[in-house]
Design a protein around this nucleic acid. Structure first.
Lengths: 323, 323
DNA sequence: TTGTATGCGTTATCAA
DNA sequence: TTGATAACGCATACAA
């Protein structure tokens, strides 16, 4: 900056003014400064600026594993980028919550906690002065508000849809144990069964991902082999559903019959599988965007209005497997 | 830091020594300092530290859209986290290369350019003093070395495999136009066809994603309807392949016959589709990890050995569609 | 309209 | 073994 000042024949203070668009600089002077900046390829040092302004322009994202982490992150990244800020990302494995601390030691203006397990929220709460935080896909906390997909509504709508198709009950493959999304999805499923007075089968342990879904599908196959009434399955996410369908295909058509399998999330491939997957769109990407925008508005002091997560949209499709 | 110093009855400089584990502090003094740190919940300010050391501990990742961006990013994140550094992430849409500049204005110690289009590399090269850079999934540049998945080997092995199954030729659905991965994959496919003396059909425009694949699949359907010999298809990535299979299913079994469809990448769902997808594992996640480690080693001055990308592994599976 | 002086929270150099 | 002092590159109050 001093080099630029020297070249333009002004003080470094005037350079600062020009760089930050402050008023009260003669246009001709500003022009000289800009020329010098261009000539020297000068770029302001964000670190020094952050030190003195106490604002870094950095937003931290703490990512715990969940079924929609990638889509949530995509939305967050887009919103942060659109705001001209920069995103700091770290995964927070369940066995290493300290990964979050290493990120928070960077000076972040604000922080997004994605699908945080309780241990992570505790860690944040125990900080000397925690950054403004918005929870994405989790419960609101004293640290700040939360924005979450409509898991419950999605599960409920799907379960109702399946019951409406004539199934006497709907079995459930659960999501990641202890996660907010999985609890909400299970709650929605239970609610719809209760409304309809349907029997409530014991949920099948799942997790997330096609391999976990395939394993769960085998359990369901066994369940049916033991005589239970299984004609419809709601998996906690699309990737599980895909695996469940595969498990049914593995069994082969030896035992005749068809099962309707639904997922949750409407991942990009859901519509293009053979057969396409019945699911509900929870707009995870949009949720990520809105959460980030909420955080940004709070940082700018605007008393941000409560952010509404989009309602889940049912996507009835043909997804049946045979066995 | 001054508060800590006061509480421990030492100078701030001694606090700094303790924090950084410098030698020459009496153990008893160090203990007093540590106690004060704990009592006040003091955490060193990374910004101030970066200002004076000229090293921020930050690694920037510039992400251009590509078929494996998510897996590459996952590997990068893990390696950066394991090294105790922090990752800065920004997507660089083709229409907004300036997004990269905003990230680079942060002081990053080094930078990973993922699937960079030429425009992005130009932008990096034009910087006054560009950060040490490793290209991931792209060509090596004057800025630094590159680590890329074995696209060409994967495509070649798959094409050979299909030809070995007795197909007279293999049609190709291309990836993202102008991308390194897509050019390499196409080259591998051409090489295998040339070796076998097989006819080289015009590549079908694809892109990435199941929707693009489905559209490409329709083009192939039309191609066959016009009398061409189409019995095997190599799609440039698994998500395209999935869409292609769907397009064939859409056509229905009206015209009898089967097509063998293969993808590239071995995405997690590939093994669990019905039928499962023939593909080749390019270990994108591992490539991301290795690229990040290469960058980190260069930053630490170690004359890093050339990093070897893992060879592609063929995954022959049952993926046929009918029409 | 412009310049001078001060401080942001550290680390590094030197002297004690 | 420790402390005083000077940077690091910038923004901000104040003076000119």
């Amino acid at each position: 900056m001093i080099d630029v000042a020297r070249l333009a024949g002004v003080s470094h203070q005037t350079v600062s003014r020009v760089v930050n668009g402050h008023p009260g600089v003669r246009p001709e002077t500003a022009e000289r400064v800009r020329a010098a900046i261009a000539r020297l390829g000068y770029r302001p040092n964000a670190t020094a600026r952050a030190l003195v302004t106490r604002r870094s322009g950095l937003i931290g994202a703490l990512l715990a594993p969940g079924p929609d982490t990638d889509l949530l992150l995509a939305g967050i990244e887009a919103a942060v980028r659109a705001a001209g800020r920069t995103l700091l990302v770290t995964a927070v494995p369940p066995d290493d919550p300290a990964a979050a601390e290493r990120l928070l030691d960077r000076v972040v203006d604000g922080c997004l906690a994605v699908a945080p397990p309780p241990a992570l929220l505790d860690l944040l709460g125990a900080l000397a002065d925690p950054p403004p935080t918005v929870v994405v896909d989790g419960p609101a906390t004293p640290l700040g508000p939360a924005v979450a997909p409509d898991h419950r509504g999605a599960a409920r709508a799907l379960t109702r849809h399946l019951l409406g198709l004539g199934h006497r009950t709907v079995h459930h493959v659960a999501g990641i144990p202890g996660s907010h999304s999985s609890a909400e999805r299970e709650a929605g499923w239970r609610a719809a069964l209760a409304e309809a007075g349907a029997a409530v089968p014991v949920p099948v342990p799942g997790g997330t991902g096609p391999a976990a879904g395939r394993a769960a599908g085998r359990l369901i196959t066994a369940r049916r082999a033991s005589g239970e009434d299984v004609t419809a399955v709601l998996a906690a996410d699309d990737t599980l559903a895909l695996g469940v369908l595969r498990a049914f295909a593995d069994t082969g058509p030896a035992v005749p019959g068809r099962v309707h399998v639904a997922g949750i999330g409407d991942r990009p491939e859901a519509a293009h599988l053979v057969p396409s997957l019945t699911t509900a769109d929870t707009a995870a990407r949009t949720v990520g965007e809105r959460a980030a925008r909420l955080l940004l508005e709070r940082l700018e002091g605007r008393g941000a209005p409560d952010v509404q997560a989009p309602a889940a949209t049912l996507r009835p499709r043909a997804s049946t497997g045979h066995w």
